[in-house]
Amino acid sequence: MSLSRSPDQPHPPTALTCEEVEGLLPLVADDAVDPDGDPALFAHLAHCTRCQDSLSRHDLVSLALVRRPETVPEKQPLRFPVRLLAAAGIAIVLGAAWLVVSRQAAENRAEPIASQPATKNPPAGMPAPAAIVAVPVVDPPRVYRVRGGDPARPLYLIVDDQGSTVVDPHGGDGRTAAGRGDAVPVRY
């Protein structure tokens, strides 16, 4: 007979029952008993596949409790990227400084001279401020050649902010053009 016994085979006469052995298996798993101390118990275990199976589960519990649970992730200490944070801080400070400086420069440029009190007398020894004259922005005049007419004496239409004037380069008086439909732009 081998060590393992099929369930339908009888136990040896002096053996314990499976129910009795089941209650003792925690002691076996705990190494609290040994074959010399309880030969009947281990004789049963040597025979009984059912109790061997139960004991292997007790052993599984022991091994699993010794093993660190790898399914639980270890808590990682918080690591701040010091260099990155320092660079970001420097960038923020520089950016803020640039904003302040550029804003002050813009305010200085935009400060209207005319807003200064003109009636306020200048300090003694300083010249009076000059009067501010608005200079309109003048678009460059555009020149059109008037269609039709004598090809030998073409007329030109000059358009500027003062109005439209037909000019005869070969002499004659200038005339006000009725419209631009009769003129084509001159490329120059």
């Binding site: 060590l3 074959p35 010399d36 030969p39 281990f42 275990l45 004991l55 010794v66 093993r67």
Partner: peptide, 27 residues
């Protein structure tokens, strides 16, 4: 093994302990 009746139980326990030791070593 002093008790002849304990031989089979001792064999079983030896096999069990060797298996558990192997598992612990591998672990």
């Amino acid at each position: 093994v002093r008790d002849p009746l304990a031989i089979r139980g001792w064999l079983f326990q030896t096999a069990r302990n060797a298996s558990l030791d192997w598992l612990r070593r591998q672990d």
